[in-house]
Amino acid sequence: MPTLYLIRHGQASFGAANYDKLSEIGHEQSEALGQWFAQEGIIPDVVAHGTLTRQKETLAGILKGMKLELEAELQAGLDEYDFSNLLKAKYAAGGEPEGMLSDHKSHFRTLRTTVAEWQRDEIPDPPEMWAEFTGRVDTACKALMRDGVETVFAVSSGGAISQAVSALLETPGIHQTKMQLQMKNTAITRFVFTPRNTYFHGFNETPHITAANADRLLTYA
């Protein structure tokens, strides 16, 4: 059956001046995933990414690991939501938690509460409305799961992939955030699709990360 592989980007540069680029580990993760795909004989006929640098670099690493050259589709709907500006909107009057953009625990604790408020439309003037975010993710996935394709690799981000799963399973918004917070870098989520239906076949899989390399390659940010 035709399969959409939604792939989270590799480790980005958390805490750096420019988060939106892969770390050295992120590049390693991407190439390792590509090597695993090649080993398993899983060859895409369509590849895609959003507009973010970390997504583009991840796909480039996957294709490098596969020794494959393919032109990528640009699907802006695969982009992550703009959490930094969402926080700025929430704390426009001040009061932001210490370390919310530099400390992992503070960051993810703040993410939970902020996204819950955003889902309820309680944050004034966000960078995009929750309904806009969910709509563009759905549009991108439908565009990729089209007639005539068999295997699609789409590099996206944790929030967008979790929303795609949440929408397919029709879960409350809180589960979107729970899925996002446990998603590993370069993890695979799989949808199998037909012209009439889409089926959930896998979540947060990292077959390219083993006991031999997990100490270095298993990351979440």
Score class of each variant (00 low, 15 high):
19 Y>V: 08
67 K>F: 02
39 Q>A: 14
71 E>T: 12
14 F>S: 11
144 L>Q: 10
172 P>C: 08
2 P>K: 00
174 I>T: 14
74 L>F: 04
164 A>C: 03
64 K>F: 08
126 P>C: 04
90 K>N: 11
169 L>P: 14
132 E>S: 09
194 T>C: 09
180 Q>C: 15
136 R>P: 04
126 P>F: 00
22 L>V: 02
35 Q>W: 00
60 A>P: 05
163 Q>G: 01
80 E>P: 10
101 L>R: 08
107 H>P: 09
91 Y>C: 11
64 K>A: 14
154 A>S: 03
182 Q>K: 13
149 V>D: 07
93 A>E: 12
143 A>I: 04
56 K>I: 09
83 F>L: 15
160 A>N: 06
197 N>I: 00
130 W>V: 14
2 P>R: 00
208 H>I: 06
11 Q>F: 03
31 E>H: 04
88 K>E: 14
27 H>L: 09
148 G>I: 09
25 I>F: 02
137 V>L: 08
10 G>Q: 12
80 E>D: 14
204 N>M: 03
13 S>Q: 11
110 T>M: 06
157 S>V: 10
75 Q>G: 07
39 Q>M: 09
131 A>P: 00
133 F>C: 10
160 A>Y: 00
52 L>C: 02
88 K>D: 15
10 G>N: 11
14 F>T: 09
117 E>V: 08
123 I>F: 06
146 R>L: 04
125 D>T: 02
135 G>D: 09
49 H>M: 02
12 A>R: 02
100 M>R: 02
53 T>C: 05
195 P>V: 06
103 D>P: 05
206 T>S: 13
6 L>G: 13
140 A>M: 05
206 T>N: 13
100 M>L: 08
126 P>V: 00
175 H>L: 15
89 A>M: 05
36 W>S: 04
10 G>E: 10
98 E>W: 01
130 W>H: 14
159 G>S: 03
43 I>P: 05
39 Q>W: 03
16 A>D: 15
38 A>C: 05
154 A>W: 00
138 D>E: 12
137 V>R: 05
204 N>L: 07
202 G>F: 01
125 D>Q: 08
12 A>E: 12
47 V>G: 07
18 N>H: 12
11 Q>S: 11
139 T>E: 15
128 E>P: 14
167 A>F: 00
35 Q>F: 02
78 L>A: 09
200 F>D: 15
199 Y>P: 06
49 H>Y: 01
129 M>K: 12
58 T>L: 01
163 Q>I: 02
59 L>S: 10
95 G>I: 06
46 V>R: 12
218 L>A: 13
187 A>Q: 11
97 P>I: 04
161 I>M: 08
212 A>D: 15
72 A>S: 14
188 I>F: 00
153 F>T: 08
78 L>S: 09
139 T>C: 07
44 P>M: 05
61 G>I: 01
211 A>E: 15
21 K>F: 03
145 M>Y: 00
7 I>T: 14
150 E>V: 02
1 M>Y: 04
1 M>R: 00
128 E>M: 14
123 I>T: 07
109 R>G: 10
186 T>V: 12
23 S>Q: 07
201 H>D: 13
193 F>I: 02
216 R>P: 12
70 L>T: 03
74 L>C: 10
220 Y>Q: 06
174 I>E: 15
10 G>F: 06
68 L>G: 13
62 I>W: 03
157 S>A: 12
155 V>G: 10
93 A>G: 05
94 G>F: 01
80 E>I: 07
138 D>I: 00
